[in-house]
Amino acid sequence: MTIQANPLGLHQLLTLHVEDHKKLIQVEEFVGFTETLLKKYNLEKVGIASHVFDNKSYTVSFCLMESHICIHTWPENKNLALDIYLCNYSQDNTEKVRQLAQEYIAFFGAKILKQVEIDR
């Protein structure tokens, strides 16, 4: 049996600045993009919860078999907080976490304000 460097998984926390404020108020576009990523990276959705606030900002949480992807948007500040965590129970998902982060950065056309990786 091989012991992985980070057996519990990689957790990435991002704070992003997004000039196109429409991306921060169009929850359906984010959900659709995430559904596409889940298929592309062979991740299994267990459930989803979301809420759209009065100013059209949104919070969405995808519960995954492998853990979760969560977002909170602040269109008034052109910022968002994104949380991606995949556990390594059945395989090493470390690179998937990093690739997902890059996919979201590109999707939002975002500038990274803060990016933290935590080995669990």
Rank of each mutant, 00 (worst) to 15 (best):
N55R: 05
E44Q: 08
S50G: 14
D54E: 15
V60L: 07
N42Q: 04
N42F: 00
Y41M: 02
V31C: 06
H51M: 09
N42S: 08
I48Y: 04
E44R: 03
A49T: 15
L43V: 02
Y58I: 11
G32E: 06
K39F: 00
V31H: 06
V31E: 14
F53K: 10
Y41D: 06
S61V: 15
V60M: 05
I48C: 12
A49N: 14
H51N: 13
Y58A: 11
F30T: 08
S50A: 09
F33C: 07
T36N: 08
Y58S: 13
I48W: 01
G47F: 00
V46D: 13
F53M: 11
V60T: 14
K45V: 03
T36M: 02
A49H: 12
G47V: 01
Y58V: 10
F30E: 04
I48E: 15
S57H: 06
K56A: 13
N42V: 00
S50T: 13
L37Y: 02
K39L: 03
K40Q: 10
T36K: 08
N55E: 15
Y58L: 09
T59R: 07
K45A: 12
F53V: 09
Y41I: 00
L38F: 01
V31P: 03
I48Q: 14
E35N: 14
S57N: 14
K45S: 13
L38E: 07
T59S: 15
N42M: 00
N42T: 03
K40S: 05
G32Q: 06
T34D: 02
L38K: 04
K45G: 06
Y58C: 12
H51Y: 06
L37S: 04
H51W: 04
K45D: 05
V52P: 15
L38Q: 05
T34W: 00
T34I: 01
H51K: 15
I48S: 13
S57E: 14
N55Y: 05
E35M: 03
F30W: 09
V46C: 07
Y58P: 14
T34H: 01
V60I: 13
T34Q: 02
F30A: 10
E44N: 11
Y58Q: 12
K39A: 08
K56M: 10
V60E: 08
V52H: 07
S61T: 15
K45L: 06
T36D: 10
D54H: 13
K39V: 02
F33W: 06
V60A: 10
K56H: 13
K56Q: 15
D54F: 07
N55W: 03
K45Q: 13
K45H: 03
G47P: 02
E44S: 13
L37T: 02
K39M: 01
N55Q: 09
T36R: 04
V60G: 09
S57D: 13
V52F: 03
L38W: 01
F33G: 09
E44T: 11
S50R: 11
L37V: 02
K56I: 04
F53N: 14
L43H: 07
D54Y: 05
K40C: 01
L38I: 00
V46F: 03
S50I: 01
E35S: 08
L37C: 09
F30D: 05
K40F: 00
F53W: 09
G32A: 05
S61Y: 06
D54P: 12
H51A: 10
I48N: 10
L37N: 05
